Amino acid sequence: MFSNIRQAIKLSRERANDSNGLPFFQQIKEMVLLQVLTGFGPGNYHKYRLWQKDMPWQQKLGYWHDQKYYRFLNKVNPLSYRMLARNKVVAKALLSFYSIPDAEYLGYLSAAGGFKADGSTLVSAADLTELLLQRSDLHKICFKPVEGSGGEGFCAVEIERTNGIFFRELGKSATLPVADFLSQSLTVHQGCDYIIEKYLQQHPALAAFNPSSLNTLRVWVGKTATGAPKIIAIYLRVGRAGSLVDNRLSGGFGVAIDPESFKTTIAVPQDSSGQCFNQHPDSGYDMSQRQLPFKAEVVALAEKVTNILPNTRFVGLDIAFTPEQPVIIEFNLAPTAIGACVMNTSHQQLLGWLNNPS
Rank of each mutant, 00 (worst) to 15 (best):
N74H: 09
K88P: 04
L122C: 06
F24V: 01
F40M: 01
V90I: 13
L84W: 14
Y63Q: 01
D102Q: 15
M31E: 07
L11W: 09
S99C: 05
Q27F: 05
V123G: 13
K10Q: 08
Y45C: 01
F72R: 11
M31R: 06
L133G: 12
Y48W: 06
P23W: 06
H65D: 10
G39L: 04
Q7K: 14
S120E: 09
T38D: 12
Y45Q: 04
F40H: 04
Y81Q: 15
K47R: 15
R86Y: 11
E130Q: 15
M55L: 12
F115N: 10
N20E: 15
A111Y: 04
T38F: 04
Q52E: 13
S99P: 00
N44M: 02
M55A: 05
Q58W: 01
R71E: 08
D118C: 09
G119W: 01
R82H: 07
L50V: 02
N20T: 13
Y69D: 07
A125V: 00
T38I: 02
G62Q: 05
A117G: 08
L73Y: 09
I100H: 12
S124K: 13
A126P: 00
A93L: 02
M55N: 06
L61C: 02
S110F: 04
Q52W: 05
F24I: 01
L133D: 14
E14T: 11
R135H: 08
A111W: 05
A117D: 12
L131P: 04
N4A: 11
K60G: 01
K47L: 04
K53H: 13
G114W: 07
W64L: 01
W51C: 01
I9K: 12
Q67F: 10
L79R: 15
L84P: 07
P42S: 06
S3N: 13
R15P: 02
N74C: 03
V36E: 12
T38Q: 14
D118P: 06
L73M: 12
S99D: 15
L106E: 05
K53R: 14
V90W: 15
K75I: 00
S110V: 01
E14A: 13
S19H: 14
S19G: 09
T129C: 09
A91V: 04
T38H: 12
V76E: 06
N77R: 04
L131W: 10
Q27D: 11
Q26N: 12
K10Y: 09
S80Y: 08
P23E: 05
W57S: 14
L131G: 05
E104N: 06
M31F: 04
I9N: 08
Q58A: 07
A85N: 13
I9M: 11
V76I: 08
T121A: 11
